[in-house]
């Protein structure tokens, strides 16, 4: 599996997409912006370009010619996607920490980059993975519908929690009010988000691997 991951990182993915998290992460420095958009750039830009590259370079045929199992092909691709997602989130979190210190008295309309917000971002990417990858692995090359549906689901989740965060008092307290000072609560939400991300991605892997076993390399 390691060789497949290295194949993706060295051949399949343009180095630009490894650098992109630095640029999207820097957008966290815009005061009071819609920070949900930062990890969403991974969904909008990296995923379709990366999958388009795999398709145009016949990566599926290339991989299946190698002495590797089909499960390992899926596992390696999941590993690469998760690494890129974590790169986007971790770099954005670092920039977000600077933002909180740079603009301490800002009134946020959209979520501020507190740890709890990053928990929500993990859930958003969990939903994205859960829809994108099993849909993609029905064919292992058609990515248009999978990207559209999964990105739409991620946007709807972001809109729903943003709306709830503004309109529902209990949530407003957590993300805008005294809850932002409660480090334990914030870290708990972050941890819950990481757990949801892990669980959903594992489920997505199991479904994808099962589907890919049935895919014929034509």
């Amino acid at each position: 599996m390691y060789n497949l991951v290295m194949k993706d990182l060295k051949l399949g993915i343009s180095p630009w997409f490894l650098a992109l998290p630095l640029f999207t992460g820097a957008l966290m420095l815009i005061p009071g912006w819609v920070y949900f958009l930062v990890p969403m750039y991974f969904c909008f830009i990296t995923v379709p370009n990366m999958f388009g590259g795999f398709k145009s370079q016949h990566d599926l045929l290339f991989s299946t010619m190698m002495p590797v199992t089909k499960k390992d092909i899926v596992k390696a691709r999941f590993a690469v996607i998760v690494v890129l997602e974590l790169l986007h989130l971790l770099i954005a979190m670092i920039f977000g920490a600077f933002t909180l210190r740079l603009y301490p008295n800002l009134t946020y309309i959209f979520f501020a980059p507190h740890p709890g917000f990053w928990g929500l971002c993990f859930v958003m990417l969990a939903i994205f993975n859960l829809i994108l990858l099993p849909m993609y692995y029905k064919t292992a090359y058609k990515y248009g519908a999978a990207t559209t549906v999964s990105s739409t689901a991620a946007i709807l989740f972001a809109l729903a929690v943003q709306w709830a965060g503004i309109r529902i008092a209990a949530l407003n307290d957590i993300f805008y009010g005294p809850g932002t000072e409660n480090t334990g609560l914030q870290l708990s939400i972050l941890l819950a988000g990481v757990l949801v991300f892990t669980a959903f991605t594992l489920i997505a892997y199991r479904v994808s691997a099962r589907r890919f076993l049935k895919v014929e390399i034509i």
């Binding site: 194949k7 060295k10 399949g12």
Partner: peptide
């Protein structure tokens, strides 16, 4: 194996593709 009409990673150099392939 070789598929006469299908090329892989055409923008990569031979040495890059070989370095990846040989690991398998």
């Amino acid at each position: 194996c070789a598929f006469g009409d299908i090329d892989f990673y055409t923008r990569s150099k031979i040495k890059t593709l070989t370095a990846i392939t040989k690991k398998f």
